[in-house]
């Protein structure tokens, strides 16, 4: 009996550490395959170099245009998704009747699972031509199109997580506010939102993290030009799109290959920072509302 127990315990321990091994392996591989690029180019020149010509002779590996591409698209997408996502969450939490919420919340959660390729495809065939016509652009595939599509894509994620945070605000908070003579809007803006503030910001950060790492959509609709953008109407080439577009043709072990892994490493570190911030904020949120478990 005792031996059997011990064996099971060891089996689970081994399985657990095997899955951890894979997860640690990702970090190791990114560093091992990414760092060799710095034999070809200095860190500063890599991060702040203004030209990305990996296939030219001599090749240039400056990823500033790619970073700026990601930044523009992300900022644009945040402007679309945060107001709409948080606004929808507030509606669901505050105004929707019990029945409406019971229907709308699951629908929004289901919509969060629409694959990114479907969004990219829709952006390419419907939104890009529309943008091109409205703004009289030479091509519709630009930072604006990518921002809109990515923004719409992130709304369900942000809405669903923000609504969770809002629903954790204890009823007593609202009742105390009503008892003091505040109306529903004042209660919402002065009591509920501040109380759920850090939970809502966690949802925003996780949404942004998803936007930064999104690949297929930007690959299809952002236009793909590796230039530092000066307006939303220019085509851009975010970091994720660069990896996806160029990995197929980069020879194994070449400087180009290592450069793409280094971009992957940067993406990994950026999303890691976002997730850690989100985790820290949400931990504080739970303590504040007495939800610590």
């Amino acid at each position: 009996m005792r031996i059997k127990e011990t064996i099971y315990k060891w089996i689970f321990t081994i399985f657990a550490f095997a899955s951890l091994l894979f997860l640690v392996g990702i970090v190791v591989v990114l560093f091992k395959e990414g760092l060799p690029i710095f034999k070809h180019v200095k860190l500063v020149a890599f991060l702040f170099g203004k030209s990305w010509y990996p296939t030219y002779e001599p090749a240039e590996y400056g990823i500033l245009p790619l970073i700026m591409g990601s930044v523009w698209v992300t900022v644009g997408a945040v402007l679309v998704s945060v107001p709409l996502g948080v606004g929808s969450a507030l509606y669901l939490d505050e105004l929707a009747s019990y029945k409406q919420k019971a229907i709308l919340k699951p629908i929004i959660e289901i919509l969060a699972s629409i694959p990114s390729i479907v969004f990219g495809f829709f952006g390419m065939v419907i939104v890009a031509p529309l943008i091109q016509r409205i703004f009289k652009l030479p091509v519709g595939l630009c930072a604006l199109t990518a921002s809109i599509i990515l923004g719409v894509m992130a709304i369900p994620t942000i809405c669903s997580l923000a609504e969770d945070a809002l629903s954790y605000v204890p009823r007593s908070f609202r009742e105390a506010s009503f008892a003091l003579g505040a109306n529903r809007w004042q209660t919402l803006t002065k009591v509920v939102v501040p109380a759920a503030g850090s939970g809502v910001s966690t949802s925003i950060i996780l949404g942004v993290s998803r936007i930064v790492g999104e690949t297929m959509t930007v690959l299809m609709v952002s236009g793909g030009a590796a230039m530092i953008p000066v307006s939303f109407f220019q085509p851009v080439r975010p970091m994720t799109a660069t990896i996806a577009a160029e990995m197929g043709e980069a020879a194994m072990g070449s400087a180009h290959y290592h450069a793409l892994f280094a971009i992957g490493l940067i993406l990994f570190l950026v999303t890691l920072v976002f997730n850690i911030i989100a985790e820290l904020i949400s931990r504080r949120f739970r303590i504040k509302l007495g939800l610590n478990r």
Partner: peptide
Amino acid sequence: NLAGVPSVVFGL
């Protein structure tokens, strides 16, 4: 944290 790593990184 690994749940939030971009999928293209898993591809790499």
